[in-house]
Amino acid sequence: MRKRFKPLLNHNSEFALDLAPLLAVMVKLVPVLLVSSAFVQMLIIETELPQVVQQAIEQQNKDPKATQVAVEVSRKFGVKFIITENGKQMVETVALTTEKELDLPRLHAKFQEIKKSHPEIFKIEMSPEEDVPYSDVVRVMDEARKSRSNDIKFPVKDMKTGQDTSTLYMFPEVVFGNTMDG
């Protein structure tokens, strides 16, 4: 009987992998990606401006019993919260720090406190004073948008399923209230 041919395999042999085509692809890809890459990540904060007509219609349909939260930002006194509930107004202020800056931790705590007592509200009306810089406006919106602590969540009802759930979002909808003022 003829013996079956077995090729001799040397398991310890080494071979050189030709990386040149791979390198050629990379050399072409890298400049393309370098040109099209965004090294500064830009994001957006959504806000709606009140339109004159829209505002008038909303005013007509407004439920007088619904609680409203207005936030006034000033470089003199800090941030003033005006909470209107059942026709009654409650005013609270978070003063500036000793360095005349916004007291962001206290501001965030105040937003959490308001949200805890009014979990059904997601919209605030913001009215910064004329000399308030844009960065401060964004900071206040950041503090209002979402709870920083994962332990502090707020109850919310899922409209589709009717089940109670919780969310980190506090006041994601900000409307600039004084845009149309003269």
Binding site: M42, L43, E48, P50, Q51
Partner: peptide, 17 residues
């Protein structure tokens, strides 16, 4: 903002980093 709103652009998207 006022001018944009008057021109029919009420949805303001503030660009930030």
């Amino acid at each position: 903002m006022y001018t944009a709103s008057m021109a029919g652009f009420p949805n303001l998207k503030l660009v930030t980093t």
